[in-house]
Design a protein around this nucleic acid. Structure first.
Lengths: 175, 175
DNA sequence: CCCTCATGTTGAGGTAACCTCAGCTTTCGG
DNA sequence: CCGAAAGCTGAGGTTACCTCAACATGAGGG
């Protein structure tokens, strides 16, 4: 199962993506199926155009991240840990929205890959802090770069004016 | 497990979504974590802004689709079947990129929900054609409308000029 | 006509990524 | 001092796939 980590990592579960229906996934079904038999219709078309671009970007990113062989949940966890520097296991579970029991095993896996280590929490000796290792950081960084490069490949096809427009509009939508 | 079907259905696997790392998923981790500790950096930021919008849209859509209780794989299958009208089981498996064995059971589930039916294939009596039922079609249509409405809610915050810009740029990216 | 392959089903067993529950030891804090 | 927290272990569960094998029926080509 190809892996990913760090912020904005794509879903790497299924070939051209994950568990969902058309559109928002990364081209789950065969290419060219989107909007088959459906006419453009104002707002709806804007939504579908957006997801079509999302699929392209996700697919490219997924391919680009295949060399890193950590599981999706491990890479999500690593991404959270990279951003926070260190984190208690219970907090990690909260951030990942999984049960603490599950987080124990995700961290076990990351530890086996030498991507994180468990350290005692000086503030509470019952607790452990999960900390990315240097290897974990460099792995996450490499993955992040690969994804950024992939995005650049797509957006580089735009003129500077178009990029500025897109950036402006995306910021409005995001805020 | 909330469900979805039809084109552009979002991933509905996990709360704020599916199996992957940050960014391209629908806000897996807690809100506000994106770009934590990361400065804006040209192209990279465009990619991240794009995924941030994608997460918002996905989250909203996922919530909107919760009333339909079919599984993600069922809704993906239904989406493919709606677009194609009818399809052999082996073709459906190809489109969904799952094994025929697995497609058998996805269709079993759809059949139990009265969303599709199996018909003999007149061209090959070994084969069966999977066909959406009227209920399946109306369900898929309702799901599609709900998602379109959700997209409209997000994009309606833009001025007409911004929408035109976004639409133009997205079309360039998509082609 | 015969043989090879295709079709979809059933059954069995497997993996991954989660889940809940219970029990345990150690630690914390009121 | 005591109830709760922290994380671990173990057990058992679900979902969404997977492979493999076997089977009956049907198709098609030599």
């Amino acid at each position: 199962m190809p892996a990913d980590s760090g912020p904005d990592a794509p879903d790497t579960t299924r070939p051209d993506d994950d568990l969902r229906a058309d559109g928002e996934n990364a081209g789950q079904e065969k290419a060219g199926e989107e909007n088959a038999g459906r006419e453009n219709a104002g707002e709806e078309n804007l939504v579908e155009a957006f997801w079509a671009v999302a699929r392209r970007l996700r697919h490219g990113t997924r391919v680009a991240l295949e060399p890193w062989s950590i599981s999706p949940s491990q890479s999500r966890a690593l991404g959270v840990l990279i951003r926070h520097g260190e984190m208690r296991l219970s907090s990690l579970a909260d951030h990942l929205r999984i049960a603490p029991r599950s987080a124990t095993e995700v961290v076990d896996g990351l530890q086996e890959l030498d991507l994180v280590e468990r350290r005692p929490d000086p503030a509470d000796r019952r607790a452990v802090l999960v900390v990315p290792t240097p290897h974990g950081r460099s792995t996450a960084d490499a993955i992040h770069r690969a994804r950024a490069a992939e995005g650049e490949r797509l957006f580089a096809t735009l003129t500077p004016a178009d990029r500025a427009d897109l950036s402006r509009v995306l910021r409005k939508l995001h805020d």
